[in-house]
Amino acid sequence: MCHQSVGLLARHAEAVGISTLCMTSALDITQAVNPPRAAFLDYPLGHTTGKPYQPALQRQILLEALAGFSDLAVPGSVKTLPFKWSEDRSWQETAQRGPDDRRPRYDTPQYQYEEDRDRAKARASAVQFTG
């Protein structure tokens, strides 16, 4: 739903006069919600702006994508970026297939590190104290 949410936000912002460009790695979802401009990177979800620790590649991807602000002249256009995740397409076979691999949908904060929880709590109590 990430791609859908982003498309809806872009449409809202563009309507008040802000130019928007959406990255996407889920072309069908993006085309359905139909944001003003999009750049499609055919990578697995979670890599919408590149591969980890490859700053030169990340830079190329963003330069190509951002050129869409001037290249794309028709509302709803999607630019396909010229990058491949790998030579074979085996990553596509498993993407969103098989048993549910999602984490449970808790309604409490889900921290990456326990230390983050402590820091957030400390900050909240400091705000309350100086309140």
Partner: peptide, 29 residues
């Protein structure tokens, strides 16, 4: 920067947030 989400594999985003939040890339540009 940290990453937390239920619907995608967080492994790479937790190593290098630039894969979904291109902050260093944008600062470079």
């Amino acid at each position: 920067l940290r990453a937390t989400h239920f619907a995608y594999d967080l492994t790479d985003a937790r190593q290098d947030p630039n894969v979904v939040f291109p902050i260093d890339t944008l600062r470079g540009l």
